[in-house]
């Protein structure tokens, strides 16, 4: 009986321990306003974040963080997003980093991030949507509809600044996202495949071909493998997509902020 009581107490203690949710460290951030922490946060930001979010946090491939802050994001939310990443996007989790590193990054962002965004989506969104259906949807998916050979754009409005979108439409070869680089290969039995590289090592390559079949190939079974320099995404210079249509298209893309796929 004593053992039972002990067991029960142990279980209760365990349950109570589980019951209290871990407090978000950003609720009490000791680094806010501390010049030394802000300098450390800047260094961390530049190595870990700036590649996607831009040196000025104005957004490059990743969202404009000044807009995120101006939009009212709390420090707790920032902490959660940095710690866990964002599933379904290129934003990775910072699983193994100490809380303090993340808190110093937040302190740095708070120091710089009070400027309202300058490039809110504009243009004729309806015309942008029409253009998208006609010109883009064969390769890009939105909310489960469209092609798969290009990146899924379901939440591109939250993950790309306007200037990044313009750049990627006008000059897509300037930067090709990982897992979308063009390759063509010929197998030893003469099969020709062109598509995008999903993954690769010394011995094998994984490809989605232009018919959207995903498949791995052992390099020992290939007679030819060519890494093409250009994206499968065609460039849309002004002669093909005038500034007004581009503005509308980007306006429409800015509205793509995730889809609710919940079954009602």
């Amino acid at each position: 009986m004593t053992r039972i009581a002990f067991l029960f107490l142990a279980v209760s203690a365990l349950l109570q321990a589980q019951e209290t949710p871990a407090k978000n460290p950003a609720a009490n951030n000791p680094h806010l306003g501390n010049p030394q922490s802000i300098r450390s946060g800047m260094a961390l930001y530049r190595t870990r974040c700036a590649d996607c979010h831009g040196l000025d946090a104005g957004g490059y491939r990743g969202p404009d963080l000044t807009a995120v802050l101006a939009g009212g994001a709390t420090d707790e939310r920032l902490f959660g997003t940095i710690r866990k990443g964002v599933p379904g996007t290129e934003m990775p989790p910072m699983n193994d980093d100490p809380d303090d590193d993340i808190l110093m990054i937040i302190a740095y962002l708070r120091k710089i991030g009070t400027v309202p965004p300058s490039d809110r989506p504009a243009g004729n969104v309806d015309n942008g949507a029409r253009l998208f259906t006609a010109q883009c949807a064969n390769c890009h998916r939105v909310a489960g509809k469209g092609g798969r050979i290009g990146p899924d754009l379901t939440r591109v409005g939250t993950s790309r600044s306007r200037s990044a979108l313009v750049r990627e439409i006008r000059t897509p070869n300037e930067w090709i996202p990982p897992a979308f680089e063009t390759v063509s290969l010929v197998t030893k039995d003469g099969q020709r495949v062109r598509g995008i590289k999903k993954n690769e090592d010394v011995f094998s390559i994984q490809v989605m071909d232009t018919r959207e079949r995903i498949q791995g190939y052992l390099k020992s079974n290939l007679q030819e493998l060519v890494y093409e320099k250009t994206s499968l995404m065609p460039a849309f210079p002004a002669g093909r997509l005038n500034d007004s249509d581009l503005n509308d298209l980007v306006g429409y893309l800015g509205t793509l902020r995730g889809a609710d796929l919940t079954v009602k």
């Binding site: 999903k198 993954n199 690769e200 090592d201 011995f203 094998s204 994984q206 995903i214 498949q215 791995g216 190939y217 052992l218």
Partner: peptide, 10 residues
């Protein structure tokens, strides 16, 4: 995962 090589696809 690629069944031939064990490499991740998505």
């Amino acid at each position: 995962v690629d069944a031939r090589s064990g490499r991740q696809i998505w």
